[in-house]
Design a protein around this nucleic acid. Sequence first.
DNA 1: GTTCTAACA
DNA 2: TGTTAGCA
Length: 135
Amino acid sequence: MSDTLRRNLALFPIGIVQKLTELTARQIRYYEQHELIQPVRTEGNQRLFAFNDVERLLEIKKLIDQGLNISGIKRILGPLEAHSDLPNKEEQEKTGEISEQELHDLLKQELLTARMNRPGVANSLIQGELSRFFH
DNA sequence: GTTCTAACA
DNA sequence: TGTTAGCA
């Protein structure tokens, strides 16, 4: 499985992203309106974020802390790469493109990476919220 | 219980 | 940005 595919897998709802990034849901939706991120939607119109989106949000947060406005952030992060029409988690599982086992391995790998780059409270949150993937 | 959109203190 | 209303 390619790295870009892994990072673009739509996995978490806004609540988890909220804890992961320590941004409010309001802010996350606001940044989406300004095309800083492009989470996919479920059939129920709920946002599903990928690791890519989370990383992007963390960069946005850093720039906000540095006093930048939306316009400034857009210039620094640049336009969003119109990432192709990657199937979402449900479709991938439905079509058998990704097995449950692969998904678990994928998430475990991502969590290990996150643990090394972002030690602290964020990790316990990540592990807690994603524990359902490790049966 | 969670998320969504819209709108206003 | 926060927060609340009214839905799905």
